[in-house]
């Protein structure tokens, strides 16, 4: 038994290695560089508690006397703080490591939530069609006519006002994931629905019906796997969008609290000091945010090109 599972595993690896995606990936420097950057960021974020010199969430670890120390290489720098400190005397490097983790986590979980809601609704709307389809898609249209930011601002502002800031600060991540997840599901629903409409006309769906499969089996086992390529592509875009939305919310003071900052709250935090010369508090998190988003988007671009059969002849 063990040997056979081992064989299938190595088989799978062989399959991956001989696949077009793998070939394209290893022959595309941009894709490899983006993936490497993303991987490094994720590793750094996951291992932040181990590699960060200080714990930025522990207020006893930093001293207001250390505030606004510039990064190493500038005048008045301190060797203890390689990238300087913020206005509260927190080590920028540690804070950013933790913040990157929060931003990526929000991006991933919000995307998963969007995906779950959007894909289910899109599949049902596309396959069953008719009034149900019209109802669900008009609902999506209405939802899309409010921008995500507006929905998020309203919900979070109301939540903060009713539940209290202390309570909000404790559950900020969950609230933000929920808000971004719920506000953006129509993107998935539309994409999946369009795919289902194209797929359900194909003969293999007729064949599946003729075989006597249940509608739900047909939808989930047969049609859903055929929509994976566009799903993968929009997932990268949506993950990047979710991270940006969170950063924007934090920048407006409605995102992650400053005691547990994400990249966005760090940028906002430093923005007040940018004119007094403390550029590093804003610049470093901003740089990380830009590189992170760029890496995700470039990877998404590459994925879109690879998964688009019309571009195969290139």
């Amino acid at each position: 038994m063990t040997s056979s599972t081992f064989e299938t595993r190595s088989d799978l690896w062989q399959r991956i290695k001989s696949s077009l995606v793998y070939h394209s990936f290893t022959h595309n420097r941009t894709a490899m560089a983006s993936a490497a950057v993303l991987l490094i960021f994720m590793l750094a974020a996951v291992t932040a508690p181990l590699i960060a010199p200080y714990d930025p969430w522990d207020q006893t670890q930093f001293d207001i006397m250390d505030s606004e120390i510039p990064p190493v290489g500038s005048e008045g720098a301190d060797d203890r703080f390689v990238l300087g400190t913020d206005a509260m005397g927190r080590d920028m490097l540690s804070t950013m490591l933790y913040g990157t983790g929060i931003s990526i986590a929000i991006g991933i979980f919000a995307t998963i939530l969007q995906c779950l809601i959007g894909v289910s609704i899109g599949l049902v709307a596309g396959y069953f069609g008719g009034r149900l389809d019209s109802f669900l898609m008009r609902f999506a249209d209405i939802q899309l006519s409010f921008t995500t930011l507006m929905v998020a601002i309203i919900i979070i502002a109301v939540f903060q006002a009713t539940a209290g800031l202390k309570f909000y600060n404790d559950f900020a991540i969950i609230v933000i994931v929920l808000v971004i997840g719920i506000a953006e599901w129509p993107q998935y629903a539309r994409t999946v629905r369009a795919c289902v409409l194209a797929e359900k006309k194909k003969e293999y769906v007729d064949a599946a019906r003729v075989i006597g499969l249940k509608p739900m089996t047909i939808v989930y086992r047969h049609i859903l796997p055929n929509t994976f390529s566009p799903l993968l592509v929009i997932s990268t875009v949506q993950a990047a969008n979710a991270i940006i939305t969170e950063a924007a919310l934090s920048f407006l003071g409605l995102g992650m609290p400053i005691t547990k900052p994400s990249l966005g709250s760090l940028i906002r935090n430093g923005f007040e000091f940018i004119f007094s010369g403390s550029w590093w508090i804003t610049a470093f998190p901003a740089l990380i945010l830009i590189v992170l988003i760029l890496a995700i988007n470039l990877l998404g671009d590459w994925l879109r090109d690879v998964l688009n059969p019309k571009l195969y002849d290139k």
Binding site: K202, Y204, A207
Partner: peptide, 8 residues
């Protein structure tokens, strides 16, 4: 070609 599901 069309009656078999291409991804299974």
């Amino acid at each position: 070609m069309m009656t078999l599901n291409p991804v299974l």
